[in-house]
Write a protein that binds this DNA or RNA. Structure first.
Lengths: 343, 343
DNA sequence: GAGGCGTTGGAGAGCGCTCTCCCGGCATGC
DNA sequence: GCATGCCGGGAGAGCGCTCTCCAACGCCTC
């Protein structure tokens, strides 16, 4: 393999100095248009590609950021964590939003998984070694030690969703309570009187907010008691929770389910127990993930502007990287109701 | 932010030369155990972390490989490609297998998407800049130009699945025809006589092999004609294909569906048309993805050893990187039948 | 026409690391 | 006793790039 050409080679080919070629490439300062053209041709002729390692060494920038998916690695089975992540369309939307912001800027997202203590340590080491300039963190788990570790290492980072413990780190989130209220209002507008809910794991702030927001909104409509079954945001847990709910409250005519994946699990259970959706039981999900459209019937749900939120995370992170003294901030997005056939 | 310590700092703290510290870190040559201990303490004291850019610059290695998911970016909607990828549990299994091999070796996988010509160019540029030492490529699309581009740039790469056009590149694959035969044998063993199939997109070699393998095996059992509807490996396409098949062959009692995701789409259609699964119609999928277990009833399917295959890709790539003169090879894995409730 | 100023290109010093030399010291062989 | 070999450590040359100086060269002004 022929050694790839260096700046020096291009400079020689163009009959100028290394510095001038560098200036042309990086668009810094004025360079005579004629010389610029000569240099560009030399670059094309030699097939020159800048060496990132050399550039990083001096700029102390990598042009890459880590997109970390963090959570509890279930110890059972053979690393089901990655499968879990890839089975959840939510991450696709996050990736879309992040890539949408970063790609035009030539910044590369690097996907990393931090499901074990070892993996977390690797993520921190990776960042400290200067493989990436910062991290976007999406946790699937409430008590995630990673945000704290990032703050302690004073690495630029932005979270998706408010951390369970208060630490000085920027995050974006959605107004969960507002979303839950939209669901409540909609169920009431559909004339549902015996409404229940399936919540997410209650140690997750988002799950708490959705539950309490829903209960408060229903209370405002004159329904002081809303039965609840707890799931853990997985399809299977939604199935199980729906079974429990039906066993205990066979007369229910409306369910608010804290995410679409659990709702997708719940729908076949309702059908299996002879309930038609939406005629007998109206179902409202949360997230507007692709699970919502994959369900039969397609789900009425609360739409997170996930792509926008992810893009905002990328923007925030980029700002933190450019100016480390940037104060930490939180940005809260407003959800919206998407009506489909399940209500 | 205090500048992070360099080798020089550690060397000074330990009272030795840079070279010695480097030798301790990289475990090269013998270093006096006493000095080794001193150096280690100095590293711990200073909180030293090697700078990867500097190291890469001289070793011409990054310790990272790109995990590229390549395919056609549907132009409709807002970048649905990432969502598509993240909705398919198959990629989770690939990631698991790859990470399982790489993590113990301290190599980082970098996930990249190559759904447009621009993104493909970025992937190539990324590798040529020396951001990663090689690429593992998983295509969702038949005519993918990326393998050729990689070969032309003489970048180390390994594919998942045989490329549609013959090019000198290593790949791993599964014996699709054997898998299809397993499905055929099983359906026949279950006493099914009016069997049909839903195929994948027929420009994909894997889809071709599954279809022809199935037809050949059924022919060997005395069923010369097997009706087929073509899908594109998505849930929706499975739904549509099942509708077509039922409309044309209402009497069918067994279906082999070329992947689990399409099967997941097909099951509700069968149910909707009053067919019980498996009593009236037996369904066999392919992949043993988590869609197989998420389906109701859970799917009998053909199990790819995807994790093993992915790990093997990583191993092959590592070998290619270590020795660029390594000849290209292909490794074919044997699938197996997993019986669940759909047959 | 001389001095000042803005513009443009070159020289060269590193960034932090690895790795090849080389050298000193000690055990060994004749 | 001296030459020989080996082992452990240091010196220093880069890897390919950026970026700060600095020099050269107009051009304007007085």
């Amino acid at each position: 393999m022929p050694a790839s050409p260096t700046l020096e080679d291009v400079a020689r080919a163009a009959g100028v100095s290394r510095a001038t070629v560098s200036r042309v490439i990086n668009g810094i300062r004025n360079v005579d248009p004629v010389i610029q053209e000569t240099v560009r041709r030399a670059i094309a002729d030699t097939g020159y590609v800048p060496n990132r390692a050399a550039r990083s060494l001096v700029t102390r920038r990598t042009g890459a950021i880590a997109l970390v998916v963090s959570g509890a690695g279930e110890e059972s089975g053979e690393s089901p964590f990655h499968s879990q992540v890839f089975a959840d369309p939510f991450f696709g939307r996050v990736a879309s939003g992040v890539v949408g912001f970063l790609r035009p800027r030539g910044i590369h997202p690097i996907l990393m998984f931090a499901e074990t203590a070892e993996a977390r340590a690797q993520v921190i080491a990776y960042l400290r070694q200067g493989n990436a300039d910062g991290a976007i963190l999406v946790s699937t788990q409430a008590e995630d030690p990673l945000p704290r570790l990032l703050v302690e290492a004073s690495l630029p980072a932005v979270l998706f969703a408010r951390p369970a413990e208060p630490i000085p780190i920027s995050y974006v989130d959605v107004a969960h309570r507002t979303g839950a209220k939209l669901a409540a209002d909609h169920l009431v507008a559909r004339g549902r009187l015996r409404v229940a809910t399936i919540a997410g794991p209650l140690n997750v702030p988002a799950a708490q907010d959705r539950l309490s927001g829903f209960r408060d909104a229903m209370a405002a409509h004159g329904h002081p008691y809303i039965p609840c079954a707890e799931g853990d945001f997985t399809l299977d847990s939604g199935e199980a929770a729906m079974e429990r709910l039906l066993a205990e409250y066979p007369g229910l005519d409306g369910v608010f389910i804290a995410n679409d994946l659990m709702a997708q699990g719940a729908l076949p259970v309702l059908r299996h127990h002879g309930r038609r959706v939406p005629e007998d039981v109206a179902v409202v999900g949360f997230d507007d993930s692709s699970a919502a459209t994959a369900s039969r019937p397609p789900l009425t749900t609360i739409r997170h502007p996930v792509e926008d939120m992810a893009a905002e995370m990328a923007r925030l992170l980029a700002a933190h990287i450019d100016d480390p003294d940037q104060p930490v901030t939180s940005i809260i997005f407003e959800p919206s109701l998407v009506v489909r056939d399940s209500t």
